[in-house]
Design a protein around this nucleic acid. Structure first.
Lengths: 210, 210
DNA sequence: GTCTATATAGGGATAGAC
DNA sequence: GTCTATCCCTATATAGAC
């Protein structure tokens, strides 16, 4: 808002537009498949301006990818590392996470593809945001186990199970849909039932007893 | 073996070498990131020969990808669609599938990335190989439910759960490892425990009762 | 800040000799 | 079948006018 001059489309605002355009194209095409020209087109600016704002494709990608991780990870870590009672927490997590996935179904495939392409760069970045989560979760699990409410399970196991069951259908849709003989509509229905399926499946697996 | 002439490295044998090289490079780099030059180098032949054997990068990729699907899908479909008793079948599947993943941990990420990049081309191909699997599985489930051995679940749900739990750790390793605060060694241990975890978790979830 | 024009490189593909 | 040399297009990146 505090602009120094009369320049029409500059700094803050345009940069946000460009970043949104870049995210759109990167997510659809992947880093290697993305074209600076297409990003410029989507952003409604000149190709040269991309290199003016961000020096290179690589730098632009880094900004986009970090901003995505910054938007995705904190809610996830907070949800799983909160002090809510374990059962409530699981319900909450699945509910909120599936909603997030439904609003950006292509995001997980993109994130995982890129992380597998270039693993080292973001390891510290992710580690940094997640440090508090596993200890809290493990303590809650241990308490619930002691009082006989659930059977033993590692925190990493539980996190992996929840993330697997939530994310996998979105990542593996092109495989699952034909594999299970579903058409587009059937898959839509399948996804719609995930929230309740995952929670009931997880609770069923966790309940103690033989 | 029945070669027509004295040509040294030709047809059958070289083609197999080239396909193996191409698979190696495509899996590591993805379609867009792969370079024909690198494939030629790995195969130990000239770049021009690649275009002699396979007309284009796209055709080469199609061959590689189809051969991968041909190697991966039939065992999977057969394992899940067999007439073995349900419990045995699940144990067998998890056991065999995790072994397969351990021997090619980068494969699932590649397959899913590429399928998400270009979904339509392989839909019919996959569908064709899987048609018999869901009906058999659903019938077995229904029988087990009727006799009170498991609680109700859809065949697609069960397939999705098993595939999710087996595959996801391999696809999401660059996320899970830092997220759960594991180092490389810890993750290796984590993976080593998957077989028994997945089977016991699944059986626990399926057992009937409140 | 914004544009046009262009430099420069890389990569897929082919020609043509052997 | 196999090689070298090269075509040609595309994509990133920059120069330089406005």
């Amino acid at each position: 808002m505090v602009e120094t001059s009369r320049e029409v489309g500059n700094s803050r605002s345009s940069e946000a537009v460009v970043l949104a355009a870049a995210e759109d194209v990167f997510v659809r095409r992947g880093y290697d498949g993305a074209r600076m020209q297409e990003i410029a087109d989507v952003a409604g600016i000149n190709k040269a301006m991309l290199h003016y704002y961000f020096r290179s494709k690589e730098r632009l990608f880094q900004e986009v990818f970090r901003s995505i991780l910054d938007r995705i990870l904190p809610p996830l870590v907070e949800a799983l590392g909160s002090e809510l009672p374990l059962g409530v927490k699981i319900r909450h997590f699945v509910d909120g996470y599936i909603d997030a996935l439904d609003s950006s179904p292509a995001l997980p495939s993109f994130i995982l593809s890129e992380l597998n392409r270039d693993r080292s760069s973001f390891d510290a970045f992710i580690r940094d945001k997640a440090s508090a989560m596993p200890p809290v979760l493990q303590r809650q699990i241990d308490e619930a186990v002691s009082s006989g409410r659930i059977r033993p399970i590692g925190a990493e196991e539980l996190v992996t199970v929840l993330l697997s069951l939530c994310i996998f259908p979105y990542v593996a849709r092109p495989l699952l849909e034909p594999l299970c003989g579903m058409d587009e509509e059937a898959f839509r229905v399948f996804l719609a039932g995930r929230k309740s399926f995952i929670t009931s499946f997880a609770f069923s697996a966790l309940r103690p007893g033989a």
